[in-house]
């Protein structure tokens, strides 16, 4: 069992927790994730490692309560324990060698982007952060980003905070601005958020030829490469996001396929689990025949 050490609500839907898992804390690097299962009946759910504290053996996770699994995790309190907590999974981000990076986060994706921004800053890269949210009420991690970013831009869809507009608008503006001011162009964009957001960021940066990393969030089961449920098409090849990723070259990802695949269980999960199997239905069938 893995004990919950701290818990903080970042907004109505997003929770930050620290979980006691010393071995994972000692190993996890930016870009890697864990898979948890609340109890015997729970699903296996992937979440990015948002930070670690090796002394306390703590692994930080930040998650949006979108469905049953994340809601059940969110319902736990400090001192409660989670049944399974596996990691660190996936490849660490490959961030070396870049000098001027722009990290673009969308919504809870900001939590996944934060460790990369922090790691870039720590290695001396100039870091610009664009963090986009639907509105003011759901802005998260502002102080954390401010502490490590050379420049922080917050956007909201409705203009209730920061700049009104989408992160892509801001990114385009910054690219143009840097050029006008004679500052070095971005040599890396890290985009993490809703799949549609990553798709449009990648489309934009392709026009400018800026290397773009995206972190993909397909539906996963094992997270170790044995089910293929997390497969994505990258450069016309099948890749398993859990072992080959989760970060990929954004200019090569088939985002439309990923959007379709992530909606696979939407009906079932929004309506609650229906009765799939025919157990107990034999009698009814016998009458029909």
């Amino acid at each position: 069992m893995y004990k919950i050490l701290t818990k903080r609500e970042l907004n109505d839907a997003v929770t930050m927790m620290e979980v006691e898992a010393p071995l994972i804390a000692a190993k996890a690097k930016a870009g890697q994730f864990i898979i948890f299962r609340v109890d015997e009946y729970g699903e296996r759910i992937p979440l990015t490692v948002a930070g670690t504290d090796t002394e306390r053996g703590a692994v930080m996770i930040i998650f949006q309560k979108v469905g049953k699994g994340t809601q059940r995790l969110g319902a736990l309190e400090v001192g409660d324990a989670i049944l399974d907590f596996v990691g660190p999974l996936g490849h660490p981000s490959e961030l070396e060698g870049y000098e001027h990076a722009c990290v673009v986060g969308g919504g809870v994706g900001c939590a996944i982007a934060y460790p990369s921004a922090k790691a870039l800053h720590a290695q001396g890269t100039e870091v610009t952060v664009i963090a986009g949210f639907r509105n003011k009420d759901i802005v998260i991690l502002e102080d954390e980003f401010a502490a490590i970013a050379d420049e922080l831009h917050i956007t909201t869809d409705d203009g209730s905070y920061g700049t009104k507009g989408f992160v892509t608008d801001k990114l385009k503006e910054l690219i143009a601005q840097r050029e006008a001011e004679g500052r070095p162009p971005f040599d890396l964009v890290v985009a993490i958020g809703p799949v549609v957001m990553m798709k449009f960021v990648a489309k934009l940066t392709a026009e400018y030829g800026i290397k773009t990393l995206v972190s993909l969030n397909p539906i996963m089961v094992d997270g170790t490469g044995m089910c293929g449920g997390c497969r994505v098409t990258v450069n016309n090849e099948i890749k398993f996001a859990c072992v080959d990723g989760p970060e990929f070259d954004g200019h090569q990802v088939d985002f439309d396929e990923l959007i379709l695949r992530n909606n696979m269980y939407r009906d079932q999960e929004s309506k609650g689990k229906p009765h799939y199997c025919r157990i107990g239905l034999t009698a009814a069938r016998d009458e029909e025949e």
Partner: peptide, 16 residues
């Protein structure tokens, strides 16, 4: 069509 929703590896189907 290998990436279409509804296509499983037996491993995933059986593990689930």
């Amino acid at each position: 069509g290998i990436g279409l929703p509804g296509v499983y590896s037996a491993n995933e189907y059986l593990t689930r």
